[in-house]
Amino acid sequence: MQKKNTRDIHIDIANKTMSYIYQNIDTSINIDELASNFSISKIHLHKIFKEQMGINIYESIKSIRLQQASNLLLTNNYSTISQIANMCGYSSQSSFIKAFKMRFEQTPKEWRRGGYEIYSKKIFDNSLLLDSLPDFDESKVRIIKTQDRNIYYIRQKGYILKEAKKKWQQLQAWVYTNELNDYEQIGIYHDNPAITAHKECFYTAAINPKKESKLLNTNLPSNILEGGLYAVFDIYKGNREVGWFIKWAYHKWLPQSGFETTTKPSFVIMHKNHFLEDNEIDASFYLPICNS
């Protein structure tokens, strides 16, 4: 059995590598440089990442780039396919189109013209019970600028509610250990579960201590949830499952809003944690936006 100290170090390296990939997805990511920053070999970094994330680094980079692109193609009406390819780290439009078609079985243009609906339907048919996309009240949307948030988190591969509940129970124990009274519970959606197979989605359960205090237990990885411009929606129990709301926000509200989105993740701040409190949803959903 792997010693706890070694395991914690490996988890930290894998998490920091994943965060680096997300933050630099529009660039040519240098794995040699990344390994050097951890003072380990490139081969060792690949081994650690595969053990912790269940996927090798290059596959992960490719998957994230294509998932980001699939989302931007739907929401950024004023961006060309070439511009979206560049936003996701592709220097060649032809290589992007080839990779996209291999992943989604259609070209970016076909996807943009409605092909995504068929793909999305297959995902939701296999996961949720609703027959059609519900309508949500868009009259109360707020446009705000957020500040950076310092978070302690647990990352999960797979948008699986049962597994997410376990992660939140672990975080709840961490909160009690640190005797935190004033904090935010944040669910971060790195992928759009409406167009990404749920087993491939990365979800992060996070705690943001709102007051600076000396933590008694710091064994969780920490990071910065970057601030920026967001459209904020309040969602409640009647809105059922967050995945449906994400689909509505990205596929219906955003294309008609006059805004575009970015490669930053969306997230929810939970006023009641629906993973721990009888599945009742009471949260604010933050959708990253920019002027088109």
Rank of each mutant, 00 (worst) to 15 (best):
F245S: 05
N37Q: 15
K145S: 14
Y189E: 12
Y176F: 15
I151E: 04
Y236H: 11
M1F: 12
K4M: 12
I246W: 07
L287S: 02
T75P: 11
F202I: 14
Y116M: 06
T107M: 00
H198Q: 13
K247D: 06
A283C: 12
W244C: 08
K16F: 08
D182Y: 14
K4G: 03
R112A: 09
I57G: 03
E179T: 10
K165W: 04
Y236P: 00
K140G: 10
L180K: 02
N217C: 09
I160W: 00
M87T: 13
R7C: 14
I9K: 13
I64N: 11
A249F: 05
I289C: 01
F100V: 00
K50C: 09
P288Y: 01
S41N: 06
S257M: 07
T261S: 02
E110A: 03
Y236A: 11
K210M: 15
I48S: 05
R142H: 13
S139L: 07
G187Q: 11
K264V: 04
K3E: 15
F202T: 13
D191F: 10
L276Q: 03
E105D: 09
I289W: 01
G115C: 01
F124N: 10
D234I: 11
E184F: 04
I13F: 10
E117I: 04
P209N: 07
S70A: 07
L254G: 04
Y78T: 12
G114C: 01
R155L: 12
N24T: 07
N208S: 12
D8V: 14
L73R: 00
I9H: 08
E277G: 00
M53C: 05
K157P: 05
E179Q: 15
K162P: 05
T146K: 05
N30H: 02
K199N: 11
Q256C: 03
K210E: 09
R149P: 09
L74F: 02
K62C: 13
L74E: 00
I25V: 00
K140L: 10
M18D: 14
F233C: 06
T196H: 04
T107F: 00
H10F: 10
H271L: 14
S139T: 12
Y58D: 15
T177C: 15
K3I: 15
K109W: 00
S132T: 15
S132N: 15
D135F: 14
Y152I: 00
P288W: 02
L287H: 05
N181T: 11
Q106W: 00
G238C: 08
I246Q: 08
I289R: 07
I97V: 12
E105Y: 08
K3Y: 13
I154T: 09
I207Y: 02
A283V: 03
N217D: 13
H198S: 14
I281T: 10
I81D: 10
S92C: 02
Q52N: 10
K264W: 12
N219C: 14
Y250T: 08
L34H: 08
Q156F: 04
N239E: 07
